[in-house]
Design a protein around this nucleic acid. Structure first.
Length: 600
RNA sequence: GCGCCCGUAGCUCAGUUGGAUAGAGCACCAGAUUCCUAAUCUGGGGGUCACAGGUUCGAAUCCUGUCGGGCGCACCA
């Protein structure tokens, strides 16, 4: 890896610009030195410079494209510029070796000390390792789940729920001030249907024979407990009345009970919200009128007639004048209606008001997690946010694809109509919270996800949850074992952070330190991209590296973690694997998955 | 017909937001292994990154078009 001579040439006591192995500081420092000497111009644009681990081993620990990116600005050939930068970098005590390669890449190898120091940092930081200040405390709003309160959550909803909650946690780790928000659609016609369904169940609870549930009402049995509760509390006081006299009350009953049910479902997977915003409250406080007045003042609302969609004209299509928002001015394909034919607001209108409300509450960064079937709605919402915030607000709509629920390779058919859909509760009861949460973020949000109830509970390599948790548990098993031999005092967190890391000389050991050192970088890039699945892959890879190291001890007893006759070496190795466990725990914390210390 | 998402090894998917020779897990093939610290391990084959152009030092990644798959398409939420 790195020759010993290099280590001795740059003792750790010397100051260095490489505070973090994968930081840009060292390269920027070298560039500033060059401009100070007049070799390159002073005010170059460094923004496109990257300092990152190269894909290929043998290209050093970190590579920078600085010479290629700056060559035009500096008026030098990439390779010539690279020579200058390389010479500067070689003077950095943290740098062991510099090479110029290809069109002008600068490949840098850092001294072992840099990596040892990073491992010590991991041990001192604990699971806070990887915490970033990138977000600078900026408020970010993550709106997710937002299931209509018309029934229990089914398994598919769970994906958006976990995705949103995990993304929120990831953003928190990256330094944003995150608000988790639930939008309750309690103002639409669906709720009337729910209310009527509940009333029917109520009559049933009073002893009436209601027969089949009529078409158009919700047939699910989840309304029965609510109905019975009303019957018990109020007797038959709602029975003989006109619909107008009970509809509103039953709406409230129904929404309250459904939301309680949904909250309980979410609690099963440890999801809690900071804010619930009800559509009805937005309407009743006049925010819809206010938002649309605002758009009217900007000249973005007019009355017009839309073209029918080509190729697929609805049968009852009739051209009629509508109140429209000029969505086309902000990138949408057509202007969008704000009022229904009966004069009431469309869902889009209340959503406009809602997003203006969010923005005025201080959220420039807004993330909405929706089901993929709402994809057709994204453009208009983006257009609305742009119009409402003069381009200041940033809305990112993340669409979650379907979950393909399976059992032993066989697909489970779900039909909401037939009432036999699998609820989130059923699945959690079967596989547990941790498995559910982890698996739900093992795929990109916009890719379909297979969820096999049998496979995810297997205790084997095929099961990523097990594989990662097992690595963590295995570390703790070894630590327990080592404690029996050397005593707890020898292995305190402080002792491990001060362990003689220089005893870690095997290339596999060094490689795993470097892998851990990539964690802060990964947190930032995953947060920036709003892609928590990257965390899952990182953890899987780290676990694999650790299991690999373990297995090396099978063939070569010198590489076992516990060396009973060498307390110092053992201490260094305990530091190493403790570091692995901490990084894994740090990642699992984002997922809301418990890092187990024993698998039993 | 239009819009959005997707197309990477036989299968399921990664790919550090434009970097160097495109990776992993299953499956397949060939070896090792009944020991130890805990749920086997090591190696190998396998690719025109759907296709065709373009942008530049450099493209799986960005732009355009074609083909194929999913979702959506006035007033539902």
């Amino acid at each position: 890896m790195i020759p010993d001579a290099a280590v001795r040439r740059h003792p750790m006591t010397r100051t260095t610009t490489w505070n973090k192995p994968f930081g840009r500081d060292g390269v920027v420092f070298a560039l500033n030195a060059l401009s100070g000497e007049g070799i390159i111009p002073a005010d170059l644009d460094f923004s496109r410079i990257t300092v990152e681990p190269p894909r290929e081993q043998g290209h050093g620990h970190v590579a920078t494209n600085a010479a290629m990116v700056l060559s035009k600005q500096a008026g030098m050939k990439p390779r010539d510029l690279a020579e200058h930068i390389a010479a500067r970098l070689e003077a950095d005590p943290a740098v062991a070796n510099v090479e110029i390669a290809g069109p002008g890449f600068i490949n840098i190898s850092l001294t072992d000390e840099v990596w040892y120091r990073e491992l010590a940092d991991v041990l001192r930081a604990g699971t806070a390792y990887g915490d970033s200040t990138m977000g600078q405390g900026e408020p970010a709003n993550v709106e997710f789940v937002s299931v209509n309160p018309t029934g229990p959550m089914h398994a598919g909803h769970g994906r958006g729920a976990v995705y949103g909650d995990t993304l929120a946690a990831l953003l928190e780790k990256a330094g944003y001030a995150v608000t988790r928000e639930y939008w309750i659609n309690d103002a639409g016609a669906q709720i009337d249907t729910l209310s009527r369904s509940l009333h029917l169940r109520y009559r049933e609870a009073l002893g009436e024979d209601i027969g089949e549930i009529p078409e158009g009402l919700y047939p699910g049995e989840y309304l029965i407990p609510s109905a019975q509760a009303i019957a018990k509390a109020d007797g038959d006081k709602w029975r003989g009345l006109e619909e107008a006299d009970w509809l509103g009350s039953f709406r409230r009953f129904a929404i309250d009970d459904m939301m309680t049910m949904i909250r309980n479902d979410l609690k099963m997977i440890d999801i809690e919200f900071d804010v619930f915003t009800a559509e009805s409250s937005i309407v009743e406080t006049g925010k819809v009128d206010a938002a649309l007045d605002f758009l009217t003042e900007k000249g973005l609302i007019y009355t017009g007639v839309l073209e029918p969609p080509k190729g697929k004209t609805p049968e009852d299509w009739e051209p009629r004048p509508q109140t429209l928002f000029k969505a086309t001015e902000y990138g949408d394909d057509v202007d969008r209606p704000l009022k229904k034919s009966d004069g009431s607001w469309t869902y889009f209108s209340t959503d406009i008001a809602y997003h203006l409300d969010k923005y005025r509450r201080g959220f420039k960064t807004m993330i909405n997690v929706w089901g993929a079937d709402h994809g057709g709605y994204v453009k208009r919402m983006n257009a609305a946010v742009k119009a409402l915030t003069d381009g200041e607000g940033e809305l990112d709509v993340k669409l979650c694809q379907m979950v393909n629920l399976m059992d032993g390779g066989k697909q489970l058919k779900m039909s909401k109509r037939a009432g036999n859909f699998v609820t989130i509760r059923d699945v959690i009861d079967q596989v547990g919270k941790d498995v559910f949460r982890f698996i739900m973020v093992t795929r990109k949000n916009d890719a379909q996800l297979d969820f096999d109830l049998q496979q995810v509970t297997e205790q084997s390599k095929d099961n990523p949850v097990f594989y990662v948790q097992y690595a963590h548990a295995r570390v703790h098993s070894v630590l327990r074992h080592a404690t029996e031999i050397f005593g707890a005092d020898a292995l305190t967190p402080e002792k491990l952070a001060d362990a003689p890391m220089e005893k870690l000389t095997d290339s596999a050991e060094m490689a795993i330190i470097m892998q851990m050192a990539g964690w802060p970088r990964l947190v930032e890039s995953a947060a920036l991209a709003h892609e928590p699945h990257r965390v899952a892959f990182f953890l899987y890879d780290l676990a694999a590296a650790f299991h690999g190291l373990w297995n090396m001890g099978n063939d070569n007893t010198d590489l076992r973690f516990i060396m009973a006759d060498d307390p110092e070496l053992t201490r260094a190795r305990m530091a190493l694997i403790r570091g692995v466990a901490l990084v894994i725990a740090s990642g699992l914390n984002i997922f809301g998955v418990e890092p187990k210390e024993e698998m039993r």
